[in-house]
Simulated assay, not measured.
Amino acid sequence: MTETYDVVVIGGGTAGLSAALVLGRALRRTLVVDAGEPRNAPAARMQGYLSRDGMPPTEFLAEGRREIERYGVELVRDRAVDVVRDGAGEFDVTLAAGGTVHARRLVVTTGLADELPPVPGIAERFGRDVIHCPYCHGWEVRDQAFGVLASTPLSVHQALMVSQWSKDVTLFLHTVGEAELSGEDLRRLAAAGVVVVPSEVAGLVVDGDRLTGVRLADGTTHDRSVLFVAPRAVPRTGLLERLGAELLETPFGAYPVVDATGLTTVPGVWAAGNAMGFAEQVVNAASGGYRAAATLNGELLFADLDAAVARGQS
């Protein structure tokens, strides 16, 4: 027999666990389906989360799993590979390991994947001295020699932002032509003291276990101890697309159209965390999961009350 839950949360990262915590405390029978692919897995520490600043992401998620277990929330290490909305407006979720679970409502927190520029050495060092977010890591690498790898014209914005954490910043245009930079871009870069190098990056220079430079296609090297990159965001929206959720194209990929609570255009389906936007940090994901769960719980409560009233009047 198919197990039935009030809510199935698809994704066991910060947003999913936060939603599950609220739902468990609200006495909702809840299942979390966790494929174990958190976006911040490469990072040794998470930063900027009040009271948890510097905590390893693995420890943070492990504590979250312990918390939801105390409230009777179930968690399965599996992947949701399909979801179908039935005639009653509820959902059948198919799992990779086999079997199906039934949910009255869904919270989708499948996040996104960061697709890194194909430069040798970047993937191996990502999350250490190859980083992408100054708010996540800027304080830890402050005042060092920064490089910024330009893979799109938006990398100019990244170079300008990181100049707040170091006055030694070099922007390597890499695959961006000089002609793609506007006059305003060049004036702002000059005002920030950012050096612009119009050459493709061929690889990294590593000494022991430390980044020491950036090697260009012409063989020259620039001493750098930190390299900022801009990964291409790949939203994991496959399940939402199967349900017919409306998506909105952004410079960082297509994300579901949601209201202020995370409700998608599919009735009964909420999204939270990076499943609904590129810039959601851990603290935002926790908040989004909480908000979605609280709204969803109220919606279920009043749906049940209205159904009881209708039965009493029939």
Rank of each mutant, 00 (worst) to 15 (best):
E178D: 08
R188N: 13
V141Y: 12
V93G: 03
S155H: 08
A97Q: 14
A96H: 06
L204V: 01
R125L: 09
G89T: 05
A123Y: 12
G213N: 12
E140D: 13
A145C: 00
A159M: 08
E124L: 04
H102K: 07
V206K: 03
V156Y: 11
G98R: 05
F91S: 12
R187F: 09
V93I: 05
A96M: 10
R104G: 06
G127I: 02
K167C: 01
L211H: 05
F146P: 02
L149Y: 14
W165M: 01
E178H: 08
H132I: 02
L149Q: 08
G193F: 04
P134E: 00
V107N: 10
G147C: 07
A103P: 01
G177K: 11
L171G: 01
T152Y: 07
T212V: 14
L181M: 11
L181Q: 07
G87I: 03
V119N: 02
L106I: 04
D129E: 11
I122H: 03
A123I: 08
D207K: 12
T221F: 04
L154V: 10
E140M: 12
D86S: 07
G111V: 00
V169H: 04
T109Y: 07
L112Y: 09
A88T: 06
H137M: 06
E115I: 10
I122K: 10
G219F: 10
V196K: 13
S199V: 03
L160N: 01
V130K: 06
P153F: 11
T110R: 10
Q144M: 07
A96S: 08
P117D: 03
A191V: 13
T109M: 05
Q164V: 14
F126W: 14
L149K: 11
L186F: 07
L160E: 08
F146A: 02
E90Q: 14
H174Y: 12
R142N: 01
E200V: 13
W139N: 01
G98W: 04
E115S: 09
E200M: 11
A88S: 15
L116Q: 02
E180R: 11
L154R: 15
